[in-house]
Design a protein around this nucleic acid. Sequence first.
DNA 1: TGATCGATGCTCT
DNA 2: GAGCATCGATCAA
Length: 210
Amino acid sequence: MNSLWGQPLPQSFYEKDTEDLAYALLGVVLAHQTPEGLTAGRIVEVEMYRGSLDRAAHSYSGVATKRTRVMFGPPGHAYVYFIYGMHYCLNVVSAPEGKGEAILVRALEPLVGLDIMARRRNMALFNPSFSKDSQRLTNGPAKLAQALGINSRQYGWPLFESPLSLHQIEDPVSKTKIARGPRINVSYAKEAADFDWRFWIRDNPFVSRG
DNA sequence: TGATCGATGCTCT
DNA sequence: GAGCATCGATCAA
């Protein structure tokens, strides 16, 4: 737990419809306390995945497997998966329990521990005063996982009581400042490929694709 | 600035 | 055995 922002958001925060939670997550701080130090960033882009409604979701079959087990569990837990042989991605499990719905965190605006993030990302020449470099730290789901030190060890962690936590440090982002559109790299998912289930803070330079 | 493509290994069929 | 909720290097313009 870290003392910078006090208590993390309680489990009740996650007990809402998945689309409402996707909106609510924008502007929230994701923090990870490790022996290396604290790294944290503001969520600026997410995608939602909706179980058996959604051909693109890992939980589409409706059957919990070893990989997807936490997606079907109670909300507020971390669903971390391994992809393309080398990358990890972080999802926030949402309600209702049993549906297999979750929200992929696609981009952060880095706030704390940028030096640690740069080291983990092998950006040796990182210069915090050069904004183009700081944008490259966390503007993609696998990038932010690497920058925050997230991998299979964090699978299933409760985000309301673990070293990986979410914090509300500002008023919720107004819907008028939020853009939405189709998700990235799900063209195989037939009708679900066209769903506007990606949400991002409009004009924010840290999103993966504006 | 944008398109293309290889790396790399787990998951599910 | 095929495919993948990605990234970064490379090449063309």
